[in-house]
Computed example of a mutant assay.
Amino acid sequence: MTDYKEFLKHAKENTARLQKQTKGVGADYFKLHTDAMADGSLSKKTKELMSLAIAISTRCEGCITSHLASAKESGATIDDVVETVNIAIMMNGGPAIVYGGKALEAAEQYYGVDLK
């Protein structure tokens, strides 16, 4: 079983290293990310859940853990996460079943619940 909190910590360390080495490119990307995720007509919570669905569909574990943690910090409930996984499955089919399962496993760790 993957320790998703440790996985996210390691991913953040790699991201910091990448941002330092890529200088302007990395800084520009992270500014884009910050600006895109800010509250607007859609809440940050909604944007994080949308990002989680896309992360599942594109099969990016780093993105799953990052957007899951940010969604929780933005007020998303475990039920919000489960519904987001449902949408990813509906839009992406089989691969979303596998990566949606990974997102729910990570959510169990973040929310301290057992969805079994």
Score class of each variant (00 low, 15 high):
S74C: 06
S70I: 05
K9Q: 13
E61V: 05
T58G: 01
A103Q: 02
D3Y: 01
A38W: 00
R17T: 15
D3K: 02
R17Q: 15
A27L: 12
G40V: 12
D39V: 05
S74H: 07
V98I: 14
D80G: 00
I56S: 01
A71G: 09
A71M: 08
I54L: 15
I56M: 01
N86Y: 10
L115Q: 10
K31L: 13
K20P: 03
A11R: 10
K102E: 10
G101M: 05
Q21G: 12
H67E: 09
E83Q: 05
C63V: 03
K31C: 06
E6F: 00
G101K: 04
T65V: 14
V98F: 12
E108G: 11
I54M: 14
T46C: 09
K20T: 11
G112P: 03
A11L: 03
I54K: 12
E108T: 06
G26M: 10
T58Q: 10
I78H: 00
G112R: 05
S70W: 12
S57R: 12
A106F: 06
R59V: 00
G112M: 05
E48Y: 05
L42V: 12
H10C: 04
L49S: 07
E48A: 07
E73T: 13
T77C: 09
E83H: 05
V98S: 08
D28R: 06
G112N: 07
A27R: 13
T2R: 13
E105P: 01
H33P: 02
Y111C: 09
V82M: 10
D80Q: 00
V113Q: 10
E61W: 00
G62I: 04
A11V: 07
R59E: 11
K47H: 12
V113A: 09
I78F: 06
D114E: 11
D79K: 02
E73C: 08
V81W: 02
L52S: 01
V113D: 10
A27V: 09
H10V: 13
L42H: 14
G26E: 08
K9Y: 03
G94S: 13
T22S: 15
M1D: 04
K44Y: 09
F30E: 13
I64Y: 02
D39L: 05
G26F: 08
Y110V: 13
I87A: 06
T65A: 15
E108C: 09
T58H: 07
D114Y: 02
S70C: 14
